[in-house]
């Protein structure tokens, strides 16, 4: 093979490798779900979420997931939320999953919300029995962590396909947190609601759009 042909082959192979890496990175970056803007509310915004034990649709019908509701009442399968800076964000979570329990009971205490409290079905609480937690909504960099009470194992009319309805078994959790400067903050669940090999978080707990996401303070 001539020197020119060898150079051409090396350049071609390099270009293909770079293109493949670029496509992979672009695909990874574009794979995130569409952000949902929290509905305007007095002094801030209202974010309405639900958790479901199984999404019920492709590509992972059996994965546990969060969903978010827009201002018109439509549910979206997203975990990227836009909220205003320097504002109060009131969060309502309709919790349809059963309790798994916390691996670290430390997260059973409500932190980082206004008054360090939440309401569960209208009752104000500072903490939850660790075994009653089905999920948590935690934004570590903002110091926010709220355990979400699971529905009873034997509760009638449990939901298995998202979006779940008000008629199905659920608990309602509300809390409010205050945002600061603009930024992008990741949030996650600390309950091992999708365990993997050996003890680590699996599938939906490792995937943005399911049990992890971002709070975009704008």
């Amino acid at each position: 093979m001539s020197r020119g042909a060898r150079l051409l082959a090396v350049a071609g192979a390099t270009a293909v490798a770079v293109a493949l890496v670029a496509i992979y990175v672009a695909d990874f970056l574009a794979a995130n779900p569409t952000p949902l803007r929290a509905a305007p509310a007095p002094r801030g915004a209202q974010l309405t979420l639900q958790t479901v034990a199984s999404y019920g649709h492709d590509p992972h019908p059996d994965w546990v997931s969060y969903l978010a509701r827009d201002g018109s009442g439509k549910w979206h399968h997203t975990t990227i939320f836009k909220v205003p800076a320097h504002a109060l964000v009131r969060v309502t979570v309709y919790q349809y999953d059963t309790a798994t329990g916390l691996r670290n009971p430390f997260w059973s205490q409500v932190r980082g919300t206004v008054g360090n409290t939440m309401t569960v079905d209208g009752r104000t609480l500072h903490a939850l029995p660790p075994d009653d937690a089905s999920h948590t909504f935690a934004i570590p960099e903002l110091g926010v962590s709220v355990p979400l009470k699971g529905v009873g194992d034997n509760a009638p009319n449990q939901c298995s396909v998202a979006p779940c309805t008000a008629a199905q078994a659920h608990t309602t959790v509300t809390f409010t947190f205050r945002t600061g400067n603009p930024g992008r903050f990741r949030w996650q669940c600390f309950v091992p609601c999708a365990a993997s090999f050996v003890f680590g978080n699996g599938g939906p707990m490792q995937s943005i759009g399911w049990m992890d996401g971002y709070v975009q303070v704008v």
């Binding site: 059963t98 798994t100 329990g101 009971p105 205490q109 699971g150």
Partner: peptide
């Protein structure tokens, strides 16, 4: 952290990572 401390297991040099599986 008083509320959380009441729920913690006794101090140990390590803890078994339970639960291992989700409920349901």
């Amino acid at each position: 952290n008083a509320a959380a401390t009441r729920t913690l297991p006794p101090y140990s040099t390590h803890y078994f990572p339970e639960p291992l599986r989700r409920a349901g």
